[in-house]
Design a protein around this nucleic acid. Structure first.
Lengths: 385, 385
DNA sequence: TTTAAACTTAATTTACAATATAAACTTATT
DNA sequence: AATAAGTTTATATTGTAAATTAAGTTTAAA
């Protein structure tokens, strides 16, 4: 058992260095003196540290404060050309790779089709080749590589424990890629990375307690508490797909009754209706009885699920994300009002219901967010090889 | 907006001082050289800091390591007579006050009957008088006062927002007591303090991710993540009593259907059966039909609730506590096996199901745990007056 | 069996390096 | 001249490595 809580002089300096960097990132533009006031760090030290951040090309000086009497403060901001992140998403049939700034902006991007299912080794080898090509003619400073993919991923060791969508089991994604690519690699699932992305770059700015409900082929959730993604004892925190919503409900794949997944996820709705999700939604729009029944039931249970989530996590915001949410806005129509009707009254006004805001590239931005978050917190990723 | 993340020299020293103190508390007995190895802090510094801890009477040297070659290390432990905590519990009809050591041991205790219901001011004034009397002839060093009580308590400002059991609303418990008693005051509810107490002194040793389900007149839960009690955006994290367990269930007080509280809590069972809980349990033991029906249903829903809790929080351990659990062991008979039958299989072996171990004084020990936890983490409690 | 040298680990002392700060000072603007 | 931003200078605090002292065990010769 080793505790790494000590602060020797170097650690203090490093801590302050990244603290100031993350404040600059968060505030977009901020002056030295404001940094000093906000943190309590003396102006002397702020001056020294910002000088070293500039020497490292992580920040630049741009513009000044306006008005007021006295000398104007010059503003500091992230150097958009100083350091980059490689964000990668692995999807059921494609790999996306992007070069992303520390502000979450995509500078360059490539996407290729790819048979992911059943082929972990081939997929990763293809990913490695692609990444090498992608990086080759970019002589930029790359901090690390972030990877977003579905499934149960263990943190921080980046082991894909179970990926039902790909039929992968126990694939050592991080270690395999780290060996071949020689970068630090951060891997997490789509549910967590989209939440982190919205927190750092999107709709959840400064909401330190929030929950994401992600609905695609299954249902999952991710949770941020006090600004940290929390993962539970076995990285399975938020696995709400198999919470029992109705003990007398329908039989789930897992052999139990009335799991949330039996009411609201694409694969189950398709299975139950024997149609594609697009057909179901079309029929729903045309007010066809069978479709209205299944979609209204889904919406009803989604409302209950949100209400239960709010009771259990008491978040400031609930973020809805995932293919079902993003491709079929019908599902979330009137959802906020419906949820407020369902929910226990003391919590009625406690939360915001938001939809993912980062669009189709949210996955690669999320992958980059994994890296940025760890870089700004200055947490290494070298454990347990 | 002010960020207090800086580490000047004094903060570093303070941080290390409390880090070593908390490790000594946790390990019961530990040598300087082990402290140095565990933390990475140099033996020089460990020597200096432990010397200052001894000067402050917080630790003592006692005994030595055994066997091995080389010089024996002398062991450090908490000085049981060095500093104390006042732990207070407020219950529906009594107030308990105890003098507690930093190891969670009760040194002295007093208990008085008291009409709490509807009388916040009188109750607090009585509590103040009692506490003053209690402290009077104890010329010991008292760190702070911890208070455990039911209801929704906001943290860290110690405002009793809603206490249905007492019919209290918006009572400024912390600030009122702080003014009159001139001690730092830490207030939280019974559900959270019992979890913290079991973590620091009881069954949950070193289980940094755990959840407590507390069943009494209502149902609540408290959650520890990475060794921290988490409270959510409005201190309502864990309010599972009004999660919907069955959308077609019975009508709850709150006006909604099928809340967990309608299936398993003393007041509801008494209301539904029109008998006292003791009578219900007696009848259940005698195999009377009506009692078997209601208790078996309660047990069934408790199993589902635990299963859902495990999916949502993925804890290492689930702690069962509260009057219903502690007074009626029938409720939890075979519960672990039953839960494992219900639960989603990937999580089947992920958790321990434990019962509260600290007995009838768990409330005052919990109150002390609130203080100890904050003292060891060196977090002040002066915000937002 | 005795005993002293060699060895091992614990803990303290000493000399030094890193860092943060306050105070003084310079710069830029009203 | 006044005010605020930012830098320089002198200094105090703290932590560490290396050296030293302390306290025990092992080994082997007497």
């Amino acid at each position: 058992m080793v505790y790494n809580f000590k602060f020797d002089q170097q650690n203090v300096r490093k801590h302050h260095y990244f603290l100031l960097l993350s404040l600059i990132q968060k505030h977009k533009k901020i002056s030295r003196s404001q940094l000093s006031k906000f943190t309590g760090i003396s102006n002397t030290t702020v001056g020294k540290i910002t000088k070293s951040l500039m020497k490292d090309d992580l920040i630049i000086e741009k513009g000044q404060t306006e008005g007021e009497i006295g000398r104007k403060a010059s503003l500091l901001e992230i150097n958009p050309k100083g350091a980059f992140i490689i964000g990668i998403s692995i999807d059921i049939n494609s790999i996306k790779i992007a070069l992303v700034t520390l502000n979450g902006e995509i500078v360059d991007k490539t996407q290729v089709a790819c048979k992911v299912k059943h082929h972990p080794r081939e997929t990763l080898d293809q990913l490695i080749t692609l990444t090498k090509q992608f990086i080759e003619n970019k002589p930029k400073k790359i901090l690390a590589i972030g990877i977003s993919m579905p499934g149960l991923i263990s943190w921080p060791d980046g082991l894909a424990v179970r990926v039902p969508q790909f039929n992968w089991h126990e694939v050592e994604v991080r270690d395999y890629l780290k060996d071949k690519l020689n970068f630090d690699i951060f891997v997490d699932n789509d549910v967590r990375s989209v939440l982190l992305a919205e927190y750092l770059f999107g709709n959840l700015n400064n909401m330190h307690n929030s929950t994401c409900i992600y609905i695609g082929s299954g249902v999952g959730s991710s949770v941020m508490i006090n600004g940290q993604i929390v993962r539970g004892h076995n990285n399975m925190l938020g696995e709400i797909g198999h919470t029992t919503m109705n003990p007398n409900g329908a039989l789930c794949d897992c052999g139990r009754l009335g799991c949330l997944q039996t009411y609201i996820c694409i694969s189950e709705i398709e299975k139950q209706t024997q149609r594609s999700m697009d057909e179901v939604i079309l029929a729903y729009k045309n007010n066809e009885d069978w479709a209205v029944r299944v979609i209204d039931r889904a919406k009803n249970y989604l409302g209950i699920a949100i209400s239960n989530i709010i009771c259990t996590y008491n978040p400031e915001a609930v973020l809805l994300a995932g293919p079902l949410i993003e491709r079929f806005p019908e599902i979330t129509k009137n959802l906020e009002a419906d949820t407020k009707k369902h929910i226990w009254s003391p919590l009625k006004e406690s939360f915001l219901l938001l939809k993912a805001s980062l669009g189709e590239d949210s996955d690669i931005i999320g992958a980059s967010a994994l890296v940025l978050n760890n870089f700004l917190k200055n947490t290494a990723n070298n454990e347990k090889r």
